[in-house]
Nucleic acid binder design. Structure first.
Lengths: 146, 146
DNA sequence: TTTAAAAAAGACATTAATATCTTTTTAAAA
DNA sequence: TTTTAAAAAGATATTAATGTCTTTTTTAAA
């Protein structure tokens, strides 16, 4: 349901945070290799996210990408909204510009409920939540096959 | 979250069913006008759906589109899957090919739950459910502004 | 101060989604 | 049997998403 760009973004940011916590700032080639995404395209995405202050970057030798403490607090919702647009979590399932409880499209009720749940989750979780799961599961960012 | 094609499809099919129940088989130009979608493109979509037996069509004078009794029983899920592909309701939010309860992506748990709900709803509802709401709400298919 | 390694920027290429236009086929009715 | 109104088919255009390649800028270290 999310675009490739959103998926690469989430995978990349989780990888960056995991490496940061080992004291490393990975470059985009390494990131792309480890999350299995096209390198140059991933570079472009990160460049974009850096412009939007969602991730930080350092140029030059020993440069790379990293998340500041503040950036680790950014909600998944904010991140995704920067990519997919402001109303990804509000837009009508039927594609109507104006669709609300008073004047609903035929899909409104159920769709709104489900959409709200996703929004709620994305609102209350961060890249840190994704990177440091409490259930001890190992993190898969790359797996193409078993 | 659904593509334009899926949105036009749902709107068009609801309109067709509403007109059918008045004894009419609308043509694609009328449909497009009433659901506010690009006419030729809507024609193409309906042509496609007709090939896939999701909607029926009659050529020639007094031709148009209609839903048979059997077609009125097709689930929204089946319809959407024909457009978006078989695994729209199963695919991983992170974009990983293999992602399951045993080897989950960081987003798996919550995302799977929400996705299941949408799937469940689409599985158990049809165009008839959308067209003939029980709550007496009037149906908006076109509304661009209030 | 030169070199090396990194992101940033810019230009371009490819693919998929969306959209339009024209011609052909079909079938009902005049 | 001709006319008319419809879908079907085919060709093409446009736009947005995805992806690649090359050059420039920046910074640390040798």
């Amino acid at each position: 349901m999310f675009s490739k760009t959103s998926q690469y973004t989430l995978r990349a940011l989780v990888y960056i945070l995991l490496e940061n916590s080992k004291g490393r700032n990975p470059g985009f080639r390494e990131i792309a290799r480890e999350i299995d995404s096209p390198a140059e395209f991933t570079g472009k995405i990160l460049q974009d996210l850096a412009r939007k202050k969602i991730v930080s970057s350092a140029k030059g030798k020993h440069g790379g990408f990293f998340l500041t403490e503040a950036q680790r607090q950014i909600s998944l919702r904010t991140i995704i909204e920067h990519i997919e647009g402001e109303n990804i979590f509000q837009s009508c399932g039927f594609g109507l510009k104006y669709c609300d409880a008073a004047n609903p499209c035929p899909l409104h009720e159920e769709y709104a409920t489900i959409r709200e749940q996703l929004q709620q989750y994305m609102n209350s979780h961060t890249i840190s939540h994704l990177a440091f799961q409490t259930d001890g599961q190992r993190i898969y960012l790359k797996r193409e096959a078993l």
